[in-house]
């Protein structure tokens, strides 16, 4: 089956005065129809830029410098602006982080909804208004008919994010990119919004790319998860495997750094030493090598491809079966559950 979204070797560059920065470097992933893909990574890892690149709204001077983006098999990264405009909203919907600022304060909710609907569909004003009301009902806004004539400031944050979801889904897109949809909300509202997003997309068979740094949300919602580090793919695979048996040293560090309510409150959280490099100062070889406990010479010289690693794929030489790491490294790695699936002793020297 053709994936809803297929990203191949995507490269996003930002020209600056001090040279060209690579915000996204050689990133590939697919999203199957109806699938929810979680995008995780630290701030600056390139999650949001990936989303913006897909929907064609990179902030200038950022630009797609290489690779392909295909939506249901059709290339969309080179479309002329006017055709790309019809992809946005109609085929790809996007939800932003802050519902308080995503809605134009000067227009009624109903006006913003019907405007979006009429941009993409040939409907009468009456029919568009009916559809707007159905959408509001669908996202769980009580007394939808009256709320159509309310202004954004008359809604609470959670309600506004529901309106934003209704707006993003107004023209029934095949793919919804949700960029930190719950970060700005109260914890008690977050779960409702995530459940709503998941249900409403499942009803329509829409795929979701869920960008967040909240592993809890990912574990709850996503089918698969894609971990980014410094604009590069670290690991991608089914959410259960990535969370329970991470195969990239970075993912492992990330999972260990999540506090658990059940854990001992006095226990110190694990940390990854150092911090993610700035885009202008990515080390040669694997971007993670200066912070990695298992780095060896090759990691400092060559960039790893994504290798199959158990149920996931990890961009780490620990998983290169053809050219395995030194036995000492592999031994240490396998003790913590990382490394090639075969026992280190069996690896041909």
């Amino acid at each position: 089956m053709t994936p809803t979204l297929s990203v191949r070797n995507l490269r996003v560059e930002i020209p600056t005065r001090r040279g060209v920065l690579r915000a996204i470097d050689d990133l590939s992933f697919d999203i199957a129809p109806g699938e929810v893909l979680g995008m995780v990574g630290e701030s600056g890892a390139g999650k949001s830029i990936t989303g913006s690149a897909i929907i064609g709204l990179l902030e200038p001077p950022g630009r797609v410098a290489g690779g392909e983006i295909r939506l249901a098999g059709e290339r969309i990264d080179h479309l002329p602006p006017e055709r790309m405009r019809h992809v946005r909203g109609k085929r790809i919907g996007m939800i932003f982080q802050d519902p308080l600022t995503s809605l134009n304060p000067l227009y009624r909710i109903g006006e913003q909804l019907t405007e979006t609907i009429l941009t993409h569909e040939q409907l009468s004003g009456r029919a568009a208004r009916d559809k707007a009301q159905r959408l509001l009902e669908e996202v769980g806004i009580p007394a939808a008919a009256e709320r159509l004539s309310a202004y954004p400031h008359q809604f609470s944050g959670g309600m506004r994010q529901r309106v934003v979801i209704a707006l993003a889904l107004a023209a029934d897109p095949q793919l919804v990119i949700a960029d930190e949809p719950t970060t700005a909300l109260d914890v008690s509202v977050q779960a409702q919004i995530i459940a709503l997003l998941k249900r409403i997309c499942a009803d329509r068979g829409a795929s979701v790319m869920l960008i967040t740094h909240d592993m809890g949300v990912i574990a709850e919602t996503a089918d698969r998860v894609c971990v980014l580090y410094a604009g590069r793919l670290a690991e991608i695979g089914p959410v259960r495997d990535v969370v329970k048996h991470p195969q990239h040293p970075y993912t492992r560090g990330l999972m260990a750094a999540i506090p658990s309510l059940a854990g001992d409150p006095d226990e110190k959280l694990a940390q990854i030493p150092g911090s993610m490099p700035r885009l202008g100062a990515i080390p040669p070889g694997c971007a993670f090598n200066p912070r990695c406990d298992f780095a060896f010479d090759r990691c400092r010289a060559e960039r790893p491809d994504a290798y199959p690693a158990g149920a996931t794929q990890a961009a780490c030489f620990l998983h290169d079966a053809k050219n395995p790491p030194p036995p000492e490294i592999a031994g240490r790695a396998s003790e913590v559950g990382l490394g090639v699936t075969r026992a280190p002793a069996e690896v041909p020297q």
Partner: peptide
């Protein structure tokens, strides 16, 4: 630069609607 203009773009509204409807009025 505001989020609602970004969101209006992400919804595929026409340039005219964004520049004169949403931006100018604000």
């Amino acid at each position: 630069r505001t989020d609602y203009i970004k969101f209006a773009r992400a919804r595929g509204l026409s340039r005219r609607a964004i520049n004169f409807g949403h931006a100018l009025k604000n």
